[in-house]
Design a protein around this nucleic acid. Structure first.
Length: 460
RNA sequence: GUCCCCAUCGUCUAGUGGCCUAGGACAUAGCCCUCUCACGGCUAGAACAGGGGUUCAAAUCCCCUUGGGGACGCCA
């Protein structure tokens, strides 16, 4: 039997980082096994589901390079099928109508809490005669769950997990308005879509017992379950927006590369010996459920940064130049060409595309460029004198290559009896407007002779 | 409150009873390289939550405690 996995987000918000990892693991597992990876949008909550969220999820998946097979499945349109399953359960005596009001349910929970008992529905309509139903109340349909024994889940990641059935209650399958609940639709859809492996966050682990009861009631074989640990914020608490529970588009905005995100997310909870840099090809070849860890991981931007820096250095210069130009809001073939030639020196110094753009700005800023305070401080009267002197020599040279310029400047400092830094730093200040930049001779070569002389002239 | 899950350096993790005076990566500190900043190289500090067992032998197996997380909804 071939493997079929799915990613089933509810469109009530963006595709956050935890969801992205769940999607990645499902995708990897399917690709590793030559199986199929499906995308199902769980939009049964009509109030909270939005079109914008659906778009955000789909864009996020595409950006991350997680391609799914076949058409996107929308859960809401399958509601009639879900109701049909409930009809069958009703007919077979595996489900029943419950006429409890929400107030009644609330009291039940309070009483249970006070008595130190599990918070569960007491089954008061389970065996009650439907003739006693109050007038005008639309019932919900509840499953007639087993009351003794235990339900066991053999999880690929968590191992064997069991719970006594008296801890579980008769959950609602169909709401009083006739729409299906999550528990029901997820089971019916996973069954109908022939999902073989359910890989999801471990916040669903205890839900799994209830879902298994539905599979059992229907006489269906349930898929293999893998509950992967959640991602926490740097402080160990649940991931909040403040930490990184941002939509993937926010990471894109911050200048992270999809390959870096994939690599980072993969290593959060999964490992392959001491390997850290793992290409997507390798990830597909190596991924296995058995190596997924069982404890929650904290999200760490520093590590993501370092991975991103790595992939930035490997990225194509022309593509990086185009992205940088876009972020800088500059166009034109000349600017683009300058950025492309400057890219090797630039990308080694940045961790994100955002930082890359900031560092690259001086290359394409029109004269006169603004000088940072520290750069101004470098341009002392003595330094300016030296620069002016150097400028006359620079104006005469016919070799404007980094190598030629370095030879020229080194000759100049020797003649002037000064250290290279005494010239290079003011030069950097004048040309880049900053105290830090790529190698100064490289900067000069890329900027070109007239631009350099102009910039030196602007501040001497 | 009830149930479930988890627990190795600050962080991500390797480790599946002897190879562990516990390895790697990120971060941190120092040194080297050097026109600055990065990159790169080298070095350093840094962990088996605590307590009981089992065993010739435990980071690894069992139990308890503690700490963290999750679920308990006519949300998903």
């Amino acid at each position: 039997m071939s493997v079929i996995t799915r990613f089933a987000p509810s469109p009530t918000g963006f595709l956050h980082i935890g969801g992205a990892r769940t999607a990645l693991f499902n995708w990897l597992f399917a690709r590793h096994n030559g199986g199929r990876f499906l995308l199902r949008i769980e939009d049964t909550d009509r109030v909270r589901s939005t079109e914008a969220a659906i778009d955000a999820i789909i864009d996020g998946m595409k950006w991350l390079g997680l391609d799914w097979d076949g058409e996107v499945v929308f859960q809401f349109v399958r509601a009639p099928r879900h109701a049909e399953v409930v009809d069958q359960m009703l007919a077979e005596g595996k489900a029943y109508r419950c006429y409890c009001s929400v107030e009644e349910l609330e009291e039940m929970r309070k009483a249970a809490m006070a008595a130190g008992k599990p918070l569960r529905y007491d089954g008061r309509w389970r065996d009650r005669d439907p003739k006693e139903a109050p007038e005008g109340v639309k019932p919900v349909i509840r499953i007639k769950a087993p009351q003794t024994g235990e339900t066991v889940v053999r999880d690929e990641v968590q191992g064997e997990v069991r719970v006594a059935n008296d801890q579980l209650d008769d959950m609602v399958l169909l709401r009083s308005d006739g729409t299906p609940t999550y528990m029901l639709s997820v089971v019916v859809d996973d069954h109908d879509m022939d999902i073989t492996h359910v890989i999801r966050g471990d916040d669903h682990l205890t839900n799994t017992f209830r879902q298994v009861q539905i599979y059992n009631a229907m006489g269906w074989k349930h898929p293999s379950f893998s509950h992967i640990p959640m991602i926490h914020g740097p402080d160990g608490a649940k991931l909040s927006k403040r930490h990184g529970a941002l939509g993937v588009e926010a990471y894109r905005e911050m200048g992270y590369l999809p390959e870096a995100i994939r690599n980072y997310l993969l290593r959060l909870g999964w490992s392959h010996g001491d390997d850290e840099i793992i290409s997507t090809q390798q990830a597909i070849a190596w991924f296995d459920l058995g190596a997924v860890g069982r404890s929650a991981a904290r999200f760490d931007f520093a590590k993501l940064d370092s991975l991103n820096a790595h992939y930035l250095r490997e990225a194509d210069d022309a593509a990086l130049a185009a992205e940088t130009a876009k972020r800088l809001g500059v166009g034109g073939a000349e600017a683009l060409d300058r950025l492309r030639r400057a890219m090797p020196g630039l990308k080694a110094r940045a961790k994100t595309l955002k930082e890359l753009a900031e560092n690259a700005a001086f290359y394409v800023t029109p004269r006169p460029i603004a000088l940072a305070d520290k750069a101004k401080a470098l341009l002392t009267p003595e330094a300016k004198t030296l620069l002016a002197k150097l400028a006359t020599e620079l104006a005469k040279t016919g070799d404007w290559s980094a190598v030629g310029l370095e030879a020229l400047v080194r000759g100049f400092v020797e003649a002037e009896q000064v250290k290279l830094g005494q010239v290079a730093q003011p030069l950097r200040a004048a040309l880049a407007g900053s105290t830090t930049s790529p190698g100064i001779f490289e900067v000069m070569e890329i900027l070109g002779q007239s631009e350099c002389l102009g910039r030196i002239g602007d501040c001497t």
